[in-house]
Structure formats: C-alpha cells, structure tokens
Amino acid sequence: MDKIECMRRFIKVAESGNFSTAADQLGVPKSAVSMSVSKLETHLRTRLFHRSTRRVTLTESGSRYLPECQRILAELDVLESQFQDDSGQLSGDIIVDMPGRLYASMVAPRLHEWFDTHPKTRIRLKGADYRIDPISERVDCVIRAGTLEDSELIAKPLGDFTVVNCVSPSYIERFGKPETLADLQDHFLVDYGFSLQSTSATFEYLKDGRNIEIAMKSLVSVATTDAYLTTCLNGLGIIQVPLHGVKAHLADGSLVSILEDFTSAPLPLSIVYPSKQHMPKRVREFIDWIGGVLNN
C-alpha cells in the first residue's frame, strides 16, 4: 500500500477519533486502517496516536504530522482535478457549511440533480449555525445569510431572502395575535443568538430605509436555526425568519404570518470561499450549481 493511502486513513482516524468510525467512512476493514497507521508510525519512527479502548487521540508528533498530511493531499487533489476530463466526471469530496434549515428546505430536495450529473463526488456537510473560518476548518465553501464582515475571503452574492414574522396557532390561543407594534410589549420573541449570552431579544423592522429594533421579552433563547423554528411551532414565541424556510408551515397552517407591514429588511445570502486559485474543478462547478439552486 502506498504512503498516500496510508495518509488518507491516518487523517480519517484523526478526524473521527476512532479506528472503527474511520473504517466505516472509508468502507474498509478496521484492521486495514490500523495496519496503515502502524506502517506510517514504523516509517516515521514515532507514535502518531495515543490509543485507548474507547478513543484515540493525537500525540504531539501526530498533531504536527496531521496538517502536513492534509496540505499534501489537498495539493495532490488539486493537481488531479486539473487533469479530469471535460465529460463532467468529477470526483472527490466537497466540504460545505450552511445553516441546517437552509439545507433542509432548499438544497437537500434538489441535491439529487447534482449527483445525477456527478455521481463520483460526495458532499460532506457541516451544518454549523455559527460562522466558521473556512480556512482553519478546511471547508471548501460556506453559505451564509446576513451581512458579512470584511475579510480576505471571496464572497459571491446569491440574492436576498424575504423575511416574515410568524407565530403558531397555539401561541395565538395563549397570548393573542399582535396587530400593532404597541402590542409587542405583551408578547414574547424567540431569542436567537450564537452564544446564548444574556442579551435583550429584539423585534426588527424596516422603516424609511432604516432598521428599527424593539426590545422584547423572551421565554426561550436558542443557538440553532432548527431550535428557533421548533420553539415557534410549539407556541413559545414570535420568530422572524426567511420565507423559504417556513413556506410549508404557512401553507398547512402550523404557522401564521403576523405584522405583515412591519417586516425586517431582506436577508442577503452569500457563498464564501477562500480563493479560486488552485480550487478543484468539482468545487468550482458545485459553487456555480448551488448558486443557481439558491437563486431560484
């Protein structure tokens, strides 16, 4: 077995922290993965992992070896992609990060279209609801809603999402339906934030081109988009959410639109990536494909 394959298996073990999990992901026997790591350790004359019955962790040598392996394989991957033919037969992993609700409502239902054309590729989804650094996390591209901070990353605008204010019928039964901004003092907003620090929940709306915030009470604070929606569906507060994510709930009556004259500004959507230089062909084509999906 060549060193490159041994390095791939070493990386899988390092990422999963478990030989069995790495073997399952690679589709090979656990013994084959263990043998590959052992060969590397023999070749390097150093131990790469601390082994226990439940988990393996990197040694100091392993921690230094891992990023070098990742760099070498990434460069090899780019080199190979440059020689893939023009028939559309792309191959390899595409690591993408996007909010879970966006994936569930817009991307997953159409992902089969991508695989119909590129069956040899594999999508690896990181569904983080917080903003990650695609370089340190080794992610090919990140899809984010909202205003982006200035950075050296490349951001490709994908359009704007219409935002709606929603509550559930059970919320209306318990607290009533707010009809004016003044009514909000007697209502609750589902508080959404990345850190769950104690901050004031605010209802936002656009007036004369300016974003206005009204402080509100909240019963629940959440840090993920799934929890945000679920909390609202269970009658625990008002949410302000992109329309695409709640169309089905509005159609079946599990959510009700409120305060239609007081919606917040449209939410910009962007796809962010480190650089097009040395970008594998499969990543370039996926960025173009998903841009078309999210623009429709």
Rank of each mutant, 00 (worst) to 15 (best):
K12F: 11
S31W: 06
L44V: 03
I11R: 01
R54M: 05
D77T: 11
L66F: 00
R8I: 14
T42E: 13
T21Y: 07
G17N: 05
L76S: 10
E60N: 06
T57R: 02
V28Y: 06
V37D: 04
S34D: 10
E68L: 13
S52P: 04
L76E: 14
H43S: 11
L44T: 04
V56E: 06
P29R: 03
F49V: 01
R51I: 12
S52W: 01
V13I: 04
F10Y: 14
R8M: 11
V56T: 09
P29N: 08
Q70M: 11
L79H: 13
P29H: 06
V33T: 13
V37S: 01
S81M: 05
F19S: 07
H43K: 11
K39L: 15
S81L: 03
N18T: 11
V37G: 06
R47F: 01
R51T: 07
V33C: 12
K39R: 15
Q70Y: 00
F49E: 03
S20K: 13
H50W: 07
R55C: 04
S36M: 14
V56G: 02
A14V: 01
S36W: 14
G62D: 03
T59F: 00
G62P: 03
L40K: 06
S52V: 04
R54K: 12
F19Q: 04
K39I: 13
N18K: 14
T57A: 01
E15Y: 12
E41K: 12
D77M: 04
P29C: 07
K39D: 14
P67F: 09
D24F: 09
E68D: 09
S36V: 13
R9S: 11
S52M: 03
V33F: 05
A14D: 02
S16W: 12
Q25F: 07
L79N: 13
R51Q: 13
P67I: 15
S16E: 15
G62R: 01
T21S: 11
Y65V: 00
L58A: 01
L73A: 01
G17R: 02
M35L: 15
L73S: 04
M35R: 15
K12N: 13
T53V: 10
T46N: 07
Q70T: 07
S36D: 15
V33K: 02
R71I: 00
I11K: 04
A14W: 00
P67N: 10
S61W: 00
S61C: 03
S63G: 06
D24V: 07
S16G: 08
E60M: 02
L66P: 02
L79V: 12
L40T: 08
R45E: 14
G17T: 01
P67V: 15
T57K: 01
G62V: 02
E80H: 12
L26N: 10
A74N: 12
I11Q: 01
V37N: 05
F83N: 12
K39Q: 15
Q25H: 09
D77K: 10
S16P: 04
K30V: 10
R71P: 03
D77R: 10
L76A: 11
E80V: 13
S36P: 14
V28F: 06
V56Q: 06
S61Y: 00
A74W: 08
E60S: 05
R54S: 08
A14T: 02
G17Y: 00
V28S: 05
L26K: 09
E80D: 12
F10V: 08
